[in-house]
Design a binder for these strands. Sequence first.
RNA 1: GGGGAGGUGGCUGAGUGGUCGAAAGCACCCGCCUGCUAAGCGGGUAGGGGGUGUGAAACUCCCUCGAGGGUUCGAAUCCCUCCCUUCCCGCCA
Length: 420
Amino acid sequence: MLSLDFIRKNPDVVRRAGQLKGEPAPVDEILRLDADWRAHLHKAETIKAEQNELSKQFARTRDEALKERLRQMAEAGKTELSVADAVKRELDDMLLRVPNIFDESVPIGETEADNVVIREWGSKPDLGFPPRTHYDLGEALGIMDFERGARVAGSRFAFLAGEGARLERALVQFMLDVHTREHGYVELWSPLLVNTAAMTGTANLPKFADQLFKVEERDLWLIPTAEVPVTNFHREQILDADQLPLKYVSYAPSWRTEAGAAGKDTRGFIRMHQFSKVELVKVTTPETSMEEFEKLTHDAEAILQRLGLHYNVMAMCTGDMGFAQYKKYDLNAWAPGLDRYLEVSSCSVFNDFQAMRANIRYRPGRGAPPRFAHTINGSGLALPRTLDAIVETYQRSDGMITVPEVLKPYMGGVELIGAR
RNA sequence: GGGGAGGUGGCUGAGUGGUCGAAAGCACCCGCCUGCUAAGCGGGUAGGGGGUGUGAAACUCCCUCGAGGGUUCGAAUCCCUCCCUUCCCGCCA
C-alpha cells in the first residue's frame, strides 16, 4: 500500500498512477476521510489526556465528585474514539485498494500491445520440418494427459505421466540447483495454504479474491504463487540492514481460478488451475532495489539460456503491469509449435508497497529508526510453459524429444523422450 | 480431539489494579578509567500514531506487555472469546 503520508503529500502522483494503470485511486475520498479521522482522533486524545491527568489526581484525593466527572469523560472519550476508529477502518480499507505508483522508466500504455521488448536472446529455431504443438506431441507420447485431468478435477487440470512427469521434476531440480548453488538464493519449502493476512500482505487481497481458491469455512487460501508465503516469511519483523538483500527461492505448486480468462489458452498445458513454479523473492533496501530487480531478472533469464530456449524480455506498460507492481518485466519463451511466445516468468519490483502491508522493515543503522524494506520477486521459472517450450523446441521429426543437455543429469539416463 | 502450563522490549526474565512502557541480567552504543586486552565506573538503547513545526530536528499528547472485546475513574495485572507455543494422553502420514 501507499502510506497516508505519501498520498497527502503527492495526491496528483497517486491520481495519475491510478489513471494510467487503469485502476482509479479514490484520492479525494481518502483525503476527506483522513481529515475526518484526524479531527475525531485529536478530540478523543485531548479528552484522554485530561482524563489521565485527573485520574492521577483522583488516586490521591478519592474525591467522589471528581470520580463522577471522570466517568463522564471516559464515556465521551470512548464515543469519540469509536467514531475515529470507524472512519479509520473505512480509510484503511480504501488504502488497500489504491494501486502502487510506477517507475519513470515504465512505458505508458493501456494494453499488452503497448509493452516494449527490451532485449532478445537467441532466435526462433528452424527445425527443418513443420513443428507440432506440445499438447499434440505430449498426448501422442503419453506424457501429458488432459482428458484424465479434466475427468479427475475438471478443465484446466492435467496429468503428466512417465517421462513427462520426470521432465518436470528434472526442471524443478535444475532450477533450484542453479539458483541455490550459483545465484546465492536460500531455498524455502513453504505452506501452500496461507491466511488472509498473508494474502493481504502481498496484495492478492482484498482486490483479487476472485483469482484465488479458498478453503471453505477456514481462513485459508491456496497460494497462487510461492511469492505469497515467501514474501510473508519476514512479516511483522525488523531486519538488520546487513542481512539484506535476503534472497529466497521456493518451488511450489500454485493455484489460480483464472476467473476472467474464459476461452483463453484452453488448449494445452498453458493456463492451468494448478501449475508448478520456482519462485525467486528478494527483500532489500530502497537504495538497491532497482539494481536487485535487474539482477533477479537476469537470474531467471539464466535458466532459459541454459535450456537453450529463445526468449525476449518485455517491459510491461502502465496499463498491463498490475495493481501492486512498481515495475515489471515478462520473460517470454518461444514455442515453435504454437508459433508464439509464452510468458514463463514475470519479474516485479514493488518498492515498499508489499512491505508496508506485511510490515517488513529493516534498521538502516544502529539506533536508526526502522524503514520499510523493498520486495522483489519473479518466476524462475513457471514450469508448464517452460516445459512446453522445451518440448516444442527439442522435438524431432519423428515426434520424439531430445532432452536438453543441462537436464540430462536429472533424467536418470533418459536422453530421448519417446525412445523406450 | 481431551487435560495442564504459558505468551512481557534484540534476548533472558520480574511484575497480580494507580507510583509500570515496564525491575534485573545479557547484548549493543557513547564516554571515563587502564602499557594493550579483560575487568571496572557513568550514561544511553522498543514500536506505532496525532498535534505543533523544521532541511532531517525539537517539543508535546495518545496508543501498544499474543489478538479482539469487557469490568473499572484507572488494566501487563481481573473477566470473556480467539490465535499461537509447550507438556501429558489419544489418534495418525
